[in-house]
Amino acid sequence: MDTKFDFEKFEQGIVYVKPILAADLPDEMRAKVGDLEELFSVHNAEGEQLALVADRKLAFHLARENNMEPVTVH
């Protein structure tokens, strides 16, 4: 294929969802998550954290509601 694709435009809508252990959060945040052991963080392409939510399904829903395409990070 010789069709040019604008990857820069495509990447603007991608967000990355990754699991975060509650034990790795700062103390003040850990106090707010209650008994959750794992949360999910949503990041933009530059690595900036956009959201921290209770479960993966919610992270994906949040991204799609904001016209973004979520991708899992391992």
Rank of each mutant, 00 (worst) to 15 (best):
L52W: 03
A23W: 07
R56H: 07
F60M: 15
T3P: 09
D55C: 09
I20L: 14
E8C: 10
P26Q: 05
E46I: 07
I20C: 11
E8T: 15
E69L: 06
G13T: 00
V42D: 02
V53D: 04
L58W: 10
Y16Q: 14
M68G: 01
H61M: 11
V73F: 10
E69A: 02
A54Q: 11
V42S: 13
L36N: 10
V15R: 02
E8S: 14
E37N: 04
D6Y: 14
P26Y: 03
V42L: 01
H43Q: 13
Y16E: 13
E8K: 14
K4P: 06
S41P: 05
F60K: 05
D6E: 13
F7M: 07
E37T: 15
E11I: 10
L62A: 03
A54K: 12
E46Q: 15
H74W: 04
A45M: 04
L50A: 00
D27S: 07
K9Y: 02
N66D: 15
T72M: 15
A63N: 04
D35K: 06
E69R: 01
V42K: 00
D35S: 05
F40Y: 08
D55T: 05
D6F: 08
P19L: 03
G47W: 05
L39S: 00
V53H: 01
M29S: 08
I14F: 06
K4G: 05
G47Y: 11
